[in-house]
Every structure is written in C-alpha cells, then in structure tokens.
Computed example of a mutant assay.
Amino acid sequence: MQIYVYYSIVFFSIIIIFLYFYILWEKIYEIYKNNKRKRYLDEILDLVDTSINTITSTGNVDSVDIRLFSPYFISNMKMKIIEDRLIYYIENFKDIPLKPIIEFVEKLGLVDMQINCLLKNNMHTKALACKTLGEMRSKKAIKYIMREVKSPSSDIQYNALLALAKIGDEIAFTYAFNSITSSIFLNERSLIEIIQSFEGDKKYVYNHMINCENDLLSCIFIKSAVSIKDSSLGENISKFLSSSSSEKKIASIKALSSMEDKRYIHDIAECLKNKNWEIRAVAAKALGLFGDSSILASLTESLSDSQWFVRYNSAQSILLIDKDLHSLPSIFNGNDKFAKDIIAAEIENLGFMDKITSYKDSQDINKRQLCYSISKYIKEVND
C-alpha cells in the first residue's frame, strides 16, 4: 500500500513539473510574439495610414499600389496587423468616406480570406469570420453571411445577424430575420442589440418588421423601435393597441409610452378596461410616463381594480403625474378601501408624506383638509 502512495506522489509531481514548464513556455512564447509584433507594427501602420490618407484625399482606390502590401501577406501576424488597422478606420472614422476604404479592403483580398473561413467546419472560426466581415462592412460578403444565419450555433447566428446589421443592407437584414422565424437561437436582449446596431435605413427595417407575421419578432422590433423615437413609427405601432395578441398590445403600449407620443394617450387609457389584467397593469404604468393630467380620472378608477398590480401601477402613475396632489381628496373622501389603501401605501413609499404633513399649517383649506384626511386614514389603518 505504501509503495502506491510513493508512486502517486511521483506521478503527480511529474505532472506539476510538466504543467509548470508548459505555463513558462506559454509565457515566454507570448512575450516573443508581442516583441515580434512590435517590430512590425510601426512599419506596417505607417504603410496603412499613408494608403488611407491617399485614398481619402483622392477618392480613388487605384491611387495606392496594392503590390506594396504583398510582402506582408506571407505572414499571418503581419496580415492581421493590416486587417486590424483597416477595421479601426472603418469602425471609428465615420467622418471620412468609407466606401473607398471598404473597396480597398476587398481589393487586398481580406474579405475573400474571411469568406473562405466561413467554408470551414470549425464553429469558432465561422463565428469569428462573421464578426470580422461585419466590421469590414463589405456587401460582397452578404450572400455568404446569409448562409450562416440559420446556423444551430447561437454564437454564429448572433455574429451573422450583427454582421448584416453593420453592413446595413435593408433588404438582406429584413430577409435574414424573416428566414429565422422557426430557428431563433438568441434571446430577446441579443436580438434587440442587433436591431439597434443596424447602420442602414432603420425606418425601412422597422416598418417592414413591425408587421412581421411572427409575433415574437414583431414584438421585438416594436420594443426596439423606442431607440429611434420616430413619430411615423408610432402610427404603425399604434394599430397594435387593438390587436388580438396580448404580447403585441403590451409591446405597443410600452413603446408608445417610452416615445411619449401623446397622440395615443387616450387609446392606452382605454386599455385599462381590457379583460387581461397584465395589459391593464402595463397601461397603468405606461400612462404615468406621459405626465398628462387628462387621464387622472381613468387612473383613479383603476385604483379599484381587482388585481393588485393594476392598483399599484395606477397609484404610482397618479402620484407621478399629480405632483400637487389635487386628485387625492376625491380618493380619500370616497368609500373605496382598496383605492385608499394602495394610494396611502404609495404616498409613504414614494416619500410624499413629508409634503402632506407640511400642509397642516397651510393657508389653503383644501391642503389642510387633505393632510387631515390622509393622516387620519393612515392612523386608523395602523391602529
């Protein structure tokens, strides 16, 4: 038994020694690569920067001799430096004409190299190629990226859709989303991020995809439309306030309220009467964002709703809109205990009690009466 213990100690000691030397080798190799990269960096960056300056000043890609780059393409490291620098210009310099730079990237063959990577079976290689092609913004790559949109790998699907968003071709982008209606492997947050990253005509994309037959995608585009705050989109979204789909109706209420489009405030207020309590709750919360006192009566009525969340959201919205608390006397002078309970709770939660207490010595008899009514009710409840 003792001999097995010794063998185990020797075995694990050898493994630890090998692991140590492996880590040491990796560290030395990394330092070597970084030093090697630094030696190439200044020369290559100077060539790329000079070429970009020539292209942007002349607007002609042919003004740069492509043969100057040929010696650097025999090394993957040198080629990567060139690729990264050109992508840096495309990603960060929006004030210079990008079309000739993208054409230059294509002429160097960098786009073709990444397209070839899409033909490989390695999932990581495909995802990275999609990401890089998106950063290059080359429309030449669209048809190849489109093949990866339905990939069962969420990483590939995400990078393929994001690449199409960066390239900014409206037709390809909408077609890609319509083609994945039965094969979406991404969560809502990722899809919204991709949609909001689109660099083409967003209005065209939203108007087409808001009306998508797939309810999930339609709702996602409705939710993400908030980011551009285009009033014409509000007209398209508002029609879903009467939709039979609860998901579309809720998404529309949230979108219109976030846009603060007051044209539809009373249509949203009508949703307080919907038989679906979730829609009523969302509408009650959304109405508070408009800050419009014309819907206080509807919100006050909703304080008596059978669902707690509807009452809670209504109380919050009332206090958010009615900062002078003019609507509270009618609530506390009424007989609805549900309404009194929820509004009293929110008065305390939102810190309005100090303001109401200050009304005690007010010259305004209505304010003094309000202070008395609320203080009395809260005392009765606590007792």
Rank of each mutant, 00 (worst) to 15 (best):
I66L: 10
I31H: 12
I365W: 14
L86A: 03
K376V: 15
N276M: 09
E278F: 07
D261P: 00
V5F: 15
A165F: 03
A225P: 00
F173G: 05
N382D: 12
A172C: 12
N211Y: 10
G200K: 03
R37L: 13
D305Y: 03
E170M: 10
Y264P: 01
I171M: 14
N187H: 11
Q2P: 11
I192L: 09
I156S: 02
A176N: 11
D354A: 08
I82F: 01
K150E: 11
L233C: 02
L325R: 05
Q369Y: 14
I96Y: 00
D95V: 06
F221V: 11
D267S: 04
T56E: 00
E380M: 13
G200L: 05
K27M: 08
V381E: 12
R189H: 13
K254T: 03
K229M: 08
S294N: 08
H266Y: 09
E193L: 07
K166A: 03
Y20L: 15
E346G: 09
Y359E: 02
D341T: 12
G288K: 03
I44V: 06
E270W: 08
M353Y: 02
C130A: 06
I295H: 04
S153N: 05
A129V: 08
L45A: 07
G334Y: 10
S327L: 08
K360P: 09
N53F: 12
L328V: 08
V149C: 11
Y20E: 12
G334D: 07
S298P: 02
S218Q: 03
T54I: 13
M79C: 12
N187M: 06
R368M: 09
Y4T: 14
S362F: 14
F221S: 11
L24I: 11
T300L: 12
S218E: 03
R280G: 04
L19D: 12
R263D: 00
D354V: 08
H208N: 15
E26G: 09
R189S: 12
N92T: 05
S317A: 02
Y29P: 06
N34F: 12
G334R: 07
F332D: 11
K273G: 04
A284D: 01
K166E: 06
D364I: 13
G351R: 08
L296E: 04
K367S: 07
P71S: 06
D112W: 12
K262Y: 03
I342S: 07
K131F: 13
I74H: 15
F11Y: 15
T125F: 06
H326N: 14
S246M: 07
D112R: 09
A345G: 13
I220G: 07
K249I: 01
F352E: 14
T174W: 10
Y312I: 01
D305N: 11
E213Q: 15
I171Q: 13
L289G: 04
C130H: 09
A344L: 09
D324Y: 11
V205Y: 06
N214C: 10
H326V: 14
S151F: 05
I171S: 13
E30S: 10
K254Q: 04
G291M: 00
K140D: 10
E83Q: 07
V205P: 04
V381M: 13
L272Q: 04
H326M: 12
N335V: 14
M209Q: 10
I17N: 07
S218H: 05
E247L: 05
I194R: 02
D112N: 13
K107I: 00
